[in-house]
């Protein structure tokens, strides 16, 4: 079991308020991602749950039990760090066995569990090596192995993939998702990468300046962003925003259109907005056009990769009428 409840959690360092007031309810078995720009308090929030920091006020409950003041060792959670934080002086086997040794588990059971974790994570042939002899991906697996042997109430991941190269990151993303499906244990995963958030999460918490901007499933966030911040943060490339008279036509302070929600034409006059291609990023499957739209500024447009564009080409854009997001002066969605 591993439901986690935050009630009016506040964290301040001296005068600086990192997290003003957060309440969250994470259900048992859920995969929740905390996402937000750097400095938004997502790592601090994770460390509060872990017990590595203490709350300034508010309560943290695990399975309904208040653990606000409990030290990390007594919370029964496991954490995977960005730097992996493996014990460099211990073999892989001893690294994985360490939490069990701390729990005074009998040696026979330790061996059994370590072997199981090693098999699950394909670490069998590395068990007697030192961490420094492993690649980044292997180290990450050892860190995960160390976490799973404890059979924790929940796993906490603190940007675990950010030290890996791009290809490996995609692989590990899949492995962690599979692990979740297999173990069905609550996982909280912190990242600044919205792609990781979208692909892995059951539900996403979007954080900004220590506040929860929105808490919902990935598609909910994509389709019904609660405000301009979430709309701009979720989705890649970013949503285009327009304010001024063009927005007023839609009875809004500002409107947003995602790059993939345009109809594009090269025929003169065949579109609402006329513009000039500034840069065309051709990925093969897609092409991202950075278009200087007359009177509205720079916009990103996504189109299929079949057509080629070059600097200076005239293009005409029509936003998909059903997919225009409208925001009021405070940035809230209308």
């Amino acid at each position: 079991m591993g439901s986690i409840t935050l009630e009016h959690v506040n964290k301040s360092f001296g005068e600086v308020e990192i997290i003003p007031d957060i309440s969250l309810e994470i259900k048992d078995g859920e995969f929740v991602v905390f996402v937000g720009p750097s400095g938004c308090g997502k790592s601090t929030l994770l460390r509060l749950i872990a017990g590595l920091e203490d709350t300034s006020s508010g309560h943290i409950k695990l399975d309904g039990e208040d653990v606000t003041g409990a030290p990390p060792a007594r919370r029964g959670l496991a954490m995977v760090f960005q730097s992996y934080a493996l014990y460099p002086h211990m073999s892989v086997r001893d690294n994985i066995a360490f939490p069990l040794k701390m729990a005074k588990t009998p040696q026979a059971i330790i061996d059994q569990k370590v072997d199981y974790a090693a098999r699950t994570l394909n670490l069998g042939s590395y068990l007697d090596r030192r961490p420094r002899a492993l690649s980044g991906g292997q180290r990450q697996r050892v860190a995960i192995g160390r976490a799973i042997v404890r059979e924790p109430k929940a796993f906490l991941f603190d940007e675990p993939l950010s030290n890996l190269d791009a290809a490996l990151r995609v692989n590990m993303r899949l492995e962690i998702t599979e692990l979740h499906q297999q173990l069905k244990t609550t996982m909280i995963y912190v990242t600044h990468d919205q792609v990781e958030a979208m692909t892995m999460a059951d539900r996403i918490v979007v954080l900004n300046a220590g506040n929860v901007e929105q808490f919902g499933s990935p598609l909910e966030l994509y389709k019904k962003p609660a405000n301009r911040f979430v709309a701009g943060f979720i989705g890649s490339p970013k949503m285009n925003f327009v304010d001024g008279p063009e927005a007023e036509k839609h009875k809004a302070h500002a409107i947003g259109v995602r790059p993939e929600h345009f109809t594009l034409s090269t025929t003169a006059g065949a579109g609402q907005w006329a513009g000039t291609v500034n840069v065309a990023e051709q990925l093969g499957s897609d092409t991202f056009l950075h278009v200087e739209v007359e009177g509205l500024g720079l916009m990103t447009v996504r189109t299929d990769g079949d057509q080629t564009f070059s600097h200076g080409d005239k293009v005409y854009l029509t936003p998909d009428a059903n997919r225009i997001y409208r925001f009021d002066a405070a940035g809230l969605a209308l």
């Binding site: 872990a50 017990g51 060792a73 014990y87 211990m90 939490p99 906490l156």
Partner: peptide, 23 residues
């Protein structure tokens, strides 16, 4: 991080110092 990992792994201060920091 490594000391915090030990804390998460259930090590009390004594174990953190003897098994992780000192080695």
């Amino acid at each position: 991080d490594i000391l915090e990992a030990a804390r998460m792994d259930g090590a009390e201060l004594w174990n953190e110092i003897v098994h992780v920091l000192v080695p």
